[in-house]
Write a protein that binds this DNA or RNA. Structure first.
Length: 831
DNA sequence: AGCACGCCGACT
DNA sequence: GTCGGCGTGCTC
C-alpha cells in the first residue's frame, strides 16, 4: 500500500529469540530499517537488562503491543533472509509436534557461526576521580585497565592473573570507575588463503628476462622467482599469473628465504592477495564416476518412479550389499536436472565413510556436506552455499533437516531404521526421518526411505499402502549371502574349551582367516575393558558416585569411567570396602577383546574402533583407511563397525554375546537385534566368488530370532513382532510419549511423578498411562528419574489435543509450590 | 537459558 | 555488622 502517510506507520517485528520461552517477542523497527527488514533476516536486540542477542524475524506488522513498550531493534544483520519461509513453517511444526519452544528449535538449527554473541568490553571512566573510594585490588585493576583503550573480561582476568573478576568489575561499575559496553561480533570468518603473484609490470616475457638477469647476483631472490615460475609458467601462459601461487609453498621450504620474498614484494615484483576458499577442498573429487545400473537396480529405479506417482513416501527395502547407493544416485541426478534441491540423510556413523567419497565423485562441487565433526565455519559455509545456490544437493546427518532449503524435490533417508535419527537431548527431541517426511510434504517433494532392515513403523506403513514399497532382493554382483555358524557357548563352557570370551570355533576360524590373509571384523557392542570391577572377598562393585550404574574399567587410560555422566576415578589397587587386593575386572568390552587377541594371536594386526578411539576429527577415517589398505587383520569394534564399511577382503564377521542384544529389556529388542546383527553380518563377503562367514556366539542357538537372521527372513520377524505390538498396544499401533521426572531427592521425584501420572490417568484412562517407574538407570548426574509412558492409539485419539493436555499437566507440576526443583522432560515418539 | 533481585550463614 | 550463597521470576 502506498499512501501519503506511509512513513508515519511504525513497523513492529515479532522475533524468534534463541531462548526456551514459549512465545515470540515484539520489537519496534527503527525507521531506517523499515525498507530493508525482511522476514527470515537476523537482527540484534537487547533482551532483558544486560543481554544482547541475535534473533530472527518471524513477522512484520504494524500493530503496536498494547501491554508493554516495545524496544527498538538495534541492528539488522542480513539484507536477504538467511531463514526461508519454508523453514519457518517447519520450525513451527517441530516446536508444536515435539512440544518444545520455537527458540529451542532455532537454537539447534542455527550453526553457532550465525549466532552473534555480545561481548562486554571494559574501559575506564575518564571522569572518575575518587580513587580513594577503591580497595587496593580495585585500584590495581583500574590501573591495568587504564593502560588500554578497551579490554574484554578475559583480557582483564589474564592481566591480573585471576579467574573470577566479575565481582570486582561489578563493584568498579558501581563506583563509576569503569564503563561497560557491548561489542557485537560476527563469529563466522571465511577461510582465506594468502597468495602471491607477479605484479602486472613483470608479466611480459621481456620484463621477466630483464628481471631474471637483474637478480643474477641476488641468489635468494632468484630462487624465489625460479620457484614461482616453475609452479606458474608465466612465459607460456601469461594469464596463469592472475591466479597466483599459495604463499605457503614458499614458507614450507626452508631453503627459500621469507625475507627475500618480502623484499621482492617491497620492490614491486610480487604482490600478495587473499582469496576466499571453500573448506571442502580436502575431500577428493576424482574423475567423475560413471554409474551403470544393474538389471535389478534399473527395475528398482523404475518401480520407485511409478510408486512416486501415487505415494509421497516410498520405502526401498534392499538387502545389504544390493547397491542401493547407485539407485539413489540416479534419483538424485534426475531430481537435480529438474532444478530441485535434494537432501540425503545418513546416520552420523556412516557419513564419514565411502559413500560420501562416492557421491562426491558423481556430484562434485554441487554437493554440500553437513556433518557434526565439521567445524562451525564449515557449517556456515554449507548454510550460505545453499542460500546462494551453490549447493543444490546436500548430504548430511540428522541436523541437516534444518538447512535453508526452499525448493526441495527429493529427500532420501538412508538406513531409515537407525535410532540415531532421533535426538534425545536437548530439545527439540525430533526424529529426522519423520521430520523429513513432513518437510518433503511442505515442499511438495518426495521422500525415499532406504534400509535393508526397515523399522517396523515404516514397513507397516508400506504394507498398509500408506507408503510405496520397492524391494531389491539381489546382492550387487550376485555376491552370495554369508553363511552362518552358531556357536554354543554354554556347551563350550561345559567342555572347558573357551579361552575367556573366545570359543574354540571362533578362534580356529580367526586363525585360518589370518593364514589366508583375509580380514575379520569382530563385533562387541560394549566399549571399555570391562563393564565393572568386583572384589572377590566382599563382592564390592565399582559404582558411579553420581549415577546408579557401575563404572567401566578402561585399561589404556587406567581409569574407571561412568558412561552416563563422564565421571572418572582411579583404579583401586585394593578393595575400597574391605581392603582385599583381590579386585577383579568382570565382563568384557572391546578393549579387553583387543588385548586378548594380542595374546591369543600375536601375529595378527589388531585395531579397535569405538567411541574412545575415534574421538579425534580424523581418527575414524584413519582406522578405516588402514583397514582398507590391508594394514589391519582384525578390526574390533562396537556398533561403529556395523555400518557402511564395505570391503572386499573382509570374509568373516564374529559376534560376541548376541544374547545381550537379543534380551535387552525393551519392547523393541527383537527388532533391534535383527537390525543390528543383520547389518554387521552384511559386512562379510561382498564378493561373488566366495561367500563370507558370520560366527555368532550365543548361549542359546535355538532362538527363533537367530534363525530369522540367518535366513534373512525380515518378513518372518516382522509378522511375529507386529502381532505382539498390536496385542500390547505399542507402535506402530500407538504413539508413545515418555515423560521423565527428575529431582535430586528420590522421594520428591517419585511424589511429583505419581501426582503427574494421576492427573494424566484421570483424563486419558488407566490403560494409556504406564508408570511411573524408575528407568533402567535410576539415577543420572545425581538426579533420581521416574518415567511415565503414555500410549495413544493412532486412529482413536486426537494426538494434538492429547499433547496439549499433557503439556498442561506438566506445567501444573512445574509450577506446583509444594514440589520445588523438579525437572520434566517430554519426549514425543520416544525410541 | 541467562540474569537480576532478594532473603539467610561465615567472615573483616 | 557485611559479603555472598543460590532460590524464584522475568525477559518484548
Amino acid at each position: 500500500m502506498t499512501s501519503l502517510f506511509e512513513d508515519e506507520i511504525t513497523l513492529f517485528a515479532d522475533l524468534i529469540l534463541p531462548v526456551p520461552v514459549p512465545r515470540l517477542f515484539t520489537y519496534r523497527v527503527p525507521r531506517t530499517m523499515a525498507e530493508m527488514i525482511k522476514v527470515g533476516a537476523r537482527v540484534i536486540v537487547q533482551f532483558g537488562k544486560n543481554r544482547v542477542i541475535t534473533a530472527v524475524v518471524a513477522h512484520i506488522h504494524s500493530n503496536p503491543p498494547a501491554l508493554y513498550q516495545a524496544k527498538y531493534i538495534l541492528e539488522l544483520l542480513d539484507d536477504e533472509p538467511i531463514i526461508t519461509t519454508k523453514q519457518l513453517e517447519l520450525f513451527n511444526w517441530i516446536s508444536e509436534y515435539y512440544l518444545c519452544n520455537i527458540g529451542e528449535v532455532l537454537n539447534v538449527a542455527l550453526p553457532a557461526g550465525l549466532k552473534i554473541t555480545s561481548q562486554s568490553r571494559i574501559q575506564h571512566n575518564p571522569e572518575f576521580d575518587y580513587e580513594e573510594l577503591l580497595t587496593d585490588q580495585e585500584r590495581f585493576i583500574l590501573d591495568e585497565i587504564k593502560k588500554h583503550a578497551t579490554l574484554s573480561y578475559e583480557e582483564v582476568a589474564r592481566m591480573v592473573n585471576q579467574t573470577n573478576i566479575t565481582a570486582v568489575i561489578k563493584s568498579l561499575v558501581g563506583k563509576r570507575a569503569i564503563i561497560l559496553f557491548e561489542e557485537v561480533k560476527e563469529k563466522y570468518k571465511p577461510k582465506v588463503v594468502k597468495k602471491i603473484r607477479l605484479t602486472s609490470a613483470f608479466v611480459s616475457e621481456k620484463s621477466l628476462v630483464e628481471l631474471t638477469s637483474s637478480l643474477d647476483k641476488i641468489p635468494k631472490q632468484q630462487d624465489i622467482l625460479m620457484r614461482y615460475l616453475s609452479h606458474v609458467p608465466v612465459y607460456n601462459h601469461a594469464d596463469l599469473n592472475q591466479k597466483g601461487l599459495d604463499k605457503s609453498i614458499f614458507s614450507q621450504d626452508d631453503s627459500l628465504s621469507d625475507s627475500a620474498l618480502q623484499t621482492l614484494i617491497k620492490k614491486g615484483v610480487f604482490e600478495q592477495f587473499d582469496i576466499v576458499v571453500s573448506r571442502f577442498a580436502d575431500i577428493p573429487l576424482g574423475p567423475p564416476a560413471v554409474v551403470n545400473l544393474t538389471e535389478s537396480q534399473t527395475t528398482a529405479f523404475k518401480e520407485i518412479h511409478e510408486a512416486f506417482s501415487e505415494k509421497e513416501v516410498v520405502l526401498l527395502l534392499g538387502i545389504t550389499g544390493s547397491g542401493k547407493t547407485e539407485v539413489y544416485i540416479e534419483l538424485i541426478k534426475q531430481a537435480m536436472e529438474s532444478g530441485s534441491q535434494v537432501l540425503f540423510l545418513l546416520p552420523e556413523i556412516a557419513l564419514t565413510t565411502q559413500i560420501v567419497v562416492r557421491l562426491r565423485k558423481v556430484f562434485g562441487d554441487a554437493m554440500g556436506i553437513y556433518h557434526s565433526k565439521f567445524s562451525d565455519n564449515e557449517r556456515v559455509e554449507v548454510w550460505k552455499g545453499i542460500l546462494d545456490g551453490k549447493f543444490q544437493f546436500v548430504v548430511g546427518v540428522r541436523s541437516a533437516i534444518f538447512l535453508p532449503f526452499d525448493n526441495l524435490g527429493l529427500i532420501i533417508v538412508d538406513e531409515e531404521h537407525e535410532t540415531s535419527y532421533k535426538q534425545h537431548d536437548p530439545a527439540p527431541r525430533y526424529h529426522a526421518r519423520d521430520v523429513a517426511v513432513i518437510m518433503a510434504y511442505m515442499h511438495k517433494a518426495k521422500t525415499l526411505l532406504g534400509s535393508a532392515t526397515p523399522s517396523l513403523e515404516s514397513y507397516y506403513h508400506a504394507r498398509s499402502g500408506r507408503y510405496g514399497l520397492v524391494e531389491i532382493t539381489q546382492r550387487f554382483g550376485n555376491a552370495a549371502l554369508p553363511t552362518f555358524v552358531l556357536i554354543d557357548t554354554k556347551k563350550e563352557k561345559k567342555q572347558k574349551t573357551m579361552k575367556n570370551e573366545f570359543s574354540s570355533v571362533l578362534l580356529e576360524h580367526l586363525e585360518s582367516n589370518l593364514n589366508n590373509k583375509e580380514q575379520t571384523i569382530l563385533f562387541q557392542n560394549r566399549r571399555g575393558y570391562s563393564p565393572y570391577m568386583q572384589c572377590e572377598e566382599c563382592s564390592w562393585i565399582s559404582e558411579c558416585a553420581n549415577c546408579d550404574v557401575s563404572l567401566t574399567y578402561h585399561m589404556k587410560v587406567a581409569e574407571l569411567r561412568c558412561h552416563y555422566c563422564g565421571h572418572k576415578e582411579e583404579v583401586p589397587r585394593t578393595c575400597p570396602a574391605c581392603g582385599s587386593p583381590k579386585v577383579k575386572t568382570m565382563g568384557y568390552g572391546t578393549e579387553k577383546i583387543e588385548e586378548e587377541l594380542h595374546l591369543l594371536l600375536p601375529a595378527a594386526r589388531v585395531q579397535r574402533m569405538d567411541f574412545d578411539t575415534t574421538r579425534a576429527k580424523n581418527a575414524y577415517q584413519q582406522i578405516i583407511q588402514e583397514f582398507e589398505e590391508g594394514g589391519t587383520d582384525i578390526l574390533v569394534g562396537t556398533q561403529m563397525v556395523s555400518k557402511g564399511l564395505d570391503f572386499d577382503n573382509v570374509s568373516m564377521v564374529g559376534i560376541f554375546d548376541a544374547d545381550r542384544i537379543i534380551h535387552f529389556p525393551e519392547f523393541r529388542a527383537s527388532e533391534r537385534a535383527f537390525q543390528m546383527l543383520t547389518q554387521v553380518s552384511g559386512r562379510a563377503g561382498r564378493r561373488a566368488d566366495k561367500p563370507g562367514k558370520v560366527l555368532i556366539q550365543t548361549a542359546n542357538p535355538a532362538q527363533k530370532i537367530l534363525e530369522r537372521i540367518i535366513q534373512n527372513d525380515y518378513t518372518g520377524m516382522y509378522d511375529a513382532e507386529i502381532l505382539e505390538r498390536e496385542q500390547y498396544h505399542y507402535p506402530p499401533f500407538t504413539r508413545l510419549i515418555k515423560i521423565t521426572v527428575k529431582h535430586v531427592d528420590e522421594a520428591t521425584s517419585k511424589r511429583a511423578a505419581v501426582v503427574l501420572a494421576e492427573k494424566l490417568t484421570a483424563n486419558l484412562g488407566q490403560s494409556r498411562v504406564l508408570g511411573p517407574e524408575p528407568p533402567l538407570v535410576e539415577r543420572v548426574r545425581n538426579q533420581f528419574l521416574f518415567d511415565i509412558l503414555i500410549k495413544l492409539e493412532r486412529e482413536k485419539i486426537n494426538f494434538k489435543a492429547a499433547k496439549s493436555f499433557i503439556q498442561e499437566k506438566v506445567i501444573d507440576i512445574l509450577t506446583d509450590k509444594t514440589i520445588k526443583g523438579v525437572h520434566v522432560v517430554i519426549d514425543v515418539d520416544c525410541v
